[in-house]
Amino acid sequence: MSELEANSPVLRRLIELCPNAVERTDERRGEDSARVRARQLESAMRALRDDEALDFKMLIDLTAVDWLDREPRFDVVYQLYSPEKKQRIRISVGVSESACELDSLVSVWPAANWLEREVWDLYGIRFEHHPDLRRILLYEEFEGHPLRKDYPKRRRQPLIDGAGGD
């Protein structure tokens, strides 16, 4: 993994700490971002949170992107922030459609709880060891995961049709 190079001190430190976890890095538009292997996700995230120079104490955001015809189909994207060091990093990890599963980070940042529920709700990606993986924005009877690109925008839901909706 020695071919990985980065200018930003944050990315250099991350590569130094987890050389096997980082797949590639990107610094375009002044934003540090790193692609991380799914298997090392949790250990890399713990390093990002606990290392003194990195200090990413806040999980600012967590979402997913669906690239329908690509393999792996989904990216799960984490935005981290350090309120002390005032620095940001974006971590992304690929999730294939067949597995559709990732380790939960609720034990690293409690903020991940609702965020992972939302990604499960809207993209159908399961988070292993999540304490309470329920739908959050939609209701239990909802069929499908609407932010997937193959979910048609105008699909009707049985509960709504059954209730005599137009």
């Binding site: 600012i60 955001d61 979402t63 992107v65 690239w67 994207v77 935005q79 409690p110 903020a111 709880n113 609702w114």
Partner: peptide, 24 residues
């Protein structure tokens, strides 16, 4: 957080809504 593939529509527009986080 926005993602574009260069076409006229966004691939992804994610709103990091502070209310969502503050409610949790």
């Amino acid at each position: 957080y926005i993602v574009s593939d260069g076409t006229s529509s966004p691939v992804k527009v994610r709103c990091r809504a502070p209310s969502f986080f503050n409610m949790q």
